[in-house]
């Protein structure tokens, strides 16, 4: 499903060039459960951003469903993201002025889905993350764990094939962290490709495939 070939990503910092990704080769198939681990600044977030089509590699080839996506324009990339990729962030990234339900609705609004269907799917999504009674709450009225559930509901509302989570438990206490991981794993068992970036080796070990990145290179894989 995802094929990365000889991916390099360089950043210009002042007059120095920093290589964030150094010759990454990766094949990821549907339904996998992958954790990406590594120290800060190792390039794991950059890798996730490139997989998510938010960032462009400096060189290399990226095939998404056998399609070369390095040459697509902004609109096409936005469409692929909208239809195939769900995001979960460390800092939730909920829009503060919108209620939980309205936050979950956003990807469907961008996709131009009609109002009735949106309402229906939001109700289902809210129920599936166990927040039916909190649907009309603003993010500031929810706990960290609840906010991350809203974010997961938003990430999965378009039924994407890929779910990308960047430190999903980084901002949560260990109890809600486990709850969130279990929720993500449930989604993986339903067939969603799950890629989790984490510092936490304990959490990382739960994945069937573990990728360690150091200095922009894949150090080892299990």
């Amino acid at each position: 499903m995802i094929q990365l070939k000889d991916i390099y990503r360089d950043f210009q910092v002042g007059d120095q060039t920093v290589r964030a990704l150094d010759n990454i080769n990766l094949n990821i198939s549907q339904g996998e459960y992958i954790s990406v681990m590594g120290p800060s600044g190792s390039g794991k977030s950059t890798l996730l951003n490139i997989i998510a089509l938010l960032d462009h590699p400096t060189s290399g080839q990226y095939l998404f469903n056998r399609q070369d996506v390095t040459k697509l324009d902004d609109n096409a990339l936005a469409k692929i993201r909208r239809e195939n990729i769900g995001f979960v962030f460390q800092f939730f990234h909920l829009i503060p002025r919108l209620t939980a339900a309205e936050n979950i609705e956003i990807p469907m609004i961008l996709a131009g889905i009609n109002r009735q269907e949106r309402q229906q799917r939001v109700m289902q999504a809210v129920a599936s993350v166990g927040l039916s009674d909190r649907a009309k709450h603003l993010p500031e009225q929810l706990s960290g764990g609840q906010r991350q559930r809203v974010a997961i509901a938003r990430a999965t509302i378009m039924r994407p094939a890929i779910l990308l989570a960047d430190e999903p438990t980084g901002n949560l206490d260990s109890h809600s962290g486990i709850e969130i991981i279990e929720l993500l794993e449930t989604l993986n068992k339903q067939g969603m490709l799950l890629i989790i970036i984490t510092h936490d080796h304990h959490l990382g070990k739960r994945a069937q495939r573990q990728i360690h990145i150091v200095d922009g290179k894949i150090n080892f894989e299990k």
Binding site: L54, A78, K79, R81, E83, I106, P107, L110, M158
Partner: peptide
């Protein structure tokens, strides 16, 4: 966020 969720320019 909107861009990540698939909003075009």
């Amino acid at each position: 966020l909107l861009k990540a969720l698939g909003a075009s320019e």
